[in-house]
Design a protein around this nucleic acid. Structure first.
Lengths: 127, 127, 127, 127
DNA sequence: GTGGTCTAGACCACA
DNA sequence: GTGGTCTAGACCACG
């Protein structure tokens, strides 16, 4: 679990995204328990409130459900909904950025160039 | 001029981006006056202060300049700086989307695939 | 009479300053009439209101006085008060700028360097 | 922190300049937190919005950065950019003062004389 | 009429 | 608690 404190993306969203990804990847299987609020908070060194908010996101989305006094568990359909969530959110962001650029008169190839620059900047030359 | 009040992007930034885009596209030419604060505020139905803030962005960037009591005018180099501004804004959006995706555990190639899908969706097969 | 429309100095102040300087230099002697509002407005191609405001400044300062229906005339002490006005205003501006720079920790020689750069920028190499 | 409400310099700029000066002088070191919006607003008895606007200047300049819910912090390069900002601000003030003087008909050498007087008045003979 | 500054007070996201 | 955005309404300088 890696938190980028410098990013403009809220920490709670970074946490929720990574948990969601882990569920999508099968790290947490349906019916399995998630790490407890306090444990996770200690792990990533943030305020428990922040973890709480991340878990709220997953609850609202139906990816996990809570058992009183027991903790949070991955829902039956959790793996599926998690997989959909991550990609859909990226696709939406890309669509919006590209639409804006097109409205500003940029050509597809200009956008492709900037995209390649960006992905290299984020991932480095390798990967 | 279309404002999405529900968007997470601040209204003043939406306005600045659209005006910048219009300048980049040559809708407003160097030396030409922009719509006055109050007129534009009435047009998009926001507070004049909000428009003012949008114009501030363009002023600081040197895309436009103000003449006392006369109005705001596109700078000599306005078309160029506006185009640069548009690129910078796209690069920022791409960086953020990619950083999010990476934090969520996606690989660069998955992102590349979604990007290609997005750009085809927006531009069509040609271009 | 030269007006710099691009300057941040209000036009009415530019006019007032130049009239004041002309009086200080003896171009207009005590008792002599100043150019009429409309004539001067046509001359420098500005709104008569703007010239009016410039003349207001000189009136308030006591450098000139008005004779109903006749026009504006240089006051008995006009030459003297005009001379004092110009230099005092510059000295005040310089003092403030230098005090600020000192508060920011700059050394006198750094300020001297920037001053020389500025004066060359405004006057050119010659003069 | 001293604000001159009567000055023609906007309050938000006075605040920004003084904070910038403090950073340049090392009063606030990189990584250190600035006084919060509301605290500073109470301190100098202005509206929090006005302080916000001052901080905006420093943010855009990259001298400080914000951490969500935590506060504003001096950037890694903050001391340097603050020093640069201070110089830029002095250069602007000198340019304007000299331009005014020139428009009022003064010669470069007259201005040089007044400048030397001013700098001696502020710094004394030594330095 | 124009842009520029300021206030008071609200609501939001975040920790 | 923090910063960020927005509104309503005021006053100013300028032309």
């Amino acid at each position: 679990m890696k938190i980028d404190a410098g990013s403009h993306v809220p920490i709670y969203r970074q946490i929720a995204d990574q948990i969601r990804t882990a569920i999508a990847a099968g790290v947490y299987r349906p019916g399995e328990a998630l790490p407890s609020l306090r444990v996770l908070a200690l792990d990533v060194k943030v305020n428990p409130n922040t973890v709480q908010r991340a878990y709220d996101d997953l609850l609202r989305q139906g990816t996990v459900y809570s058992r009183r006094g027991k903790g949070l568990f991955v829902a039956e359909q959790g793996t599926v909904t998690a997989q959909q969530g991550t990609e859909k959110s990226l696709a939406r962001a890309l669509d919006e950025a590209i639409r804006n650029a097109r409205a500003a008169g940029m050509h597809a190839n200009q956008i492709r160039g900037l995209f390649n620059t960006s992905i290299r900047r984020v991932y480095g030359k390798g990967d």
